[in-house]
Design a protein around this nucleic acid. Structure first.
Lengths: 181, 181
DNA sequence: GCGGACATGTAACGACTGTTACATTCATTC
DNA sequence: GAATGAATGTAACAGTCGTTACATGTCCGC
């Protein structure tokens, strides 16, 4: 593993802990056991560093959702949504989701700087959900609703830490979906 | 209207445009036609300024949702949710919602600084929705779900600007709710 | 042993940060 | 009319920011 990769890993850890909104090179460098000088040297600029780290975030998340994607055709929609919810609320991925939401919100206020990190986020997830739903004319809208439910409940879970109530809400939603047919 | 109130109004406008994450006194002062010196003089500190502005945001939002709250008992749950959706997606309130989401996300990474601005946000809305739903044992969880739907769809709407698709998703959700009974 | 590319440390640059000291104006009150 | 206190302008403080110039070290191919 190259020195740059090692550094990238430590930077990712720091991002997951401290977010990206108020990121400052010197404290990050100190935590990673190096200097701001070296961060710029390896990543070109602060922008480049953020891009590299966020690419890493996206890669890790995508690999985590890969099983859900590949097995999508063999499962019921409800199972897939529950699978999503399990990953999204696991302690391991909590900081990742926090980071994703942070970038999404920052992009709302500062599109020029952050919007590029959103390219895949919403569209990819929407596409995935659409594949798991019946291919009728309401497919796109229904996928929008399912994504919104997971998003909204994830946000509520991150804010309050109340896993029980939010998980029950997912269950109710899946019940509504079943009764619909 | 006192000079402070006038200043506060201009600061609020600036917050709605530029957010709070990367707020800097000097550009804000320039936009408000004053100096950083005077901002500190009137509000004590940057912290005090943010608190004053966010209080203003909360007050304006609450007054906007007041009709929905007072008439809640006379309407069907679906109507109330649609009313919420109308307010939340109106051009006028778009920047307010952006700001609210921003503060919520910032609070996730920096609770000490921002959590106080969240005190009412989630709990108040949840309480309101609960009052509009049947008082059965699933009341709290159902309210959680409804709030998450509005939250998730609002976020999607803010990010993509696609009002048609997100509005249709709300409609589908309300249809699911009606079929449930 | 030598040269050359790369890694790294030190220190600094200029810009920007919130905040404050000092001076001045202005209106009001005794 | 003098005095007092608030409003405001100017300039600076000490600190942090991303970035860079310069020097030193370190390792590899020849």
């Amino acid at each position: 593993m190259s020195a740059r990769d090692e550094l990238l890993r430590k930077c990712l850890d720091y991002f997951l802990k401290h977010g990206v909104a108020n990121l400052s090179l010197r404290p990050l460098a100190a935590a990673a056991g190096t200097s701001a000088r070296m961060l710029i040297h390896h990543f070109g600029s602060k922008e480049g560093l953020i891009a590299a780290v966020m690419d890493q975030v996206r890669a890790r998340l995508q690999s985590s959702f890969e099983p859900l994607i590949t097995d999508a055709s063999k499962r019921k929609p409800g199972e897939i949504m529950l699978g999503f919810w399990k990953v999204v609320t696991s302690r391991k991925y909590r900081p990742y989701l926090r980071l994703l939401f942070e970038v999404q919100i920052l992009a709302l206020q500062n599109p020029r700087r952050y919007q590029r990190y959103l390219i895949d986020t919403s569209a990819t997830w929407l596409r995935l959900i659409r594949r798991a739903l019946p291919r009728d004319k309401s497919n796109a809208v229904m996928a929008t609703l399912c994504l919104a439910v997971v998003d909204g409940l994830t946000l509520e879970y991150l804010a309050t830490g109340n896993l029980s109530r939010t998980s029950k809400a997912i269950d109710i939603f899946l019940t509504l979906l079943r009764k619909q047919k």
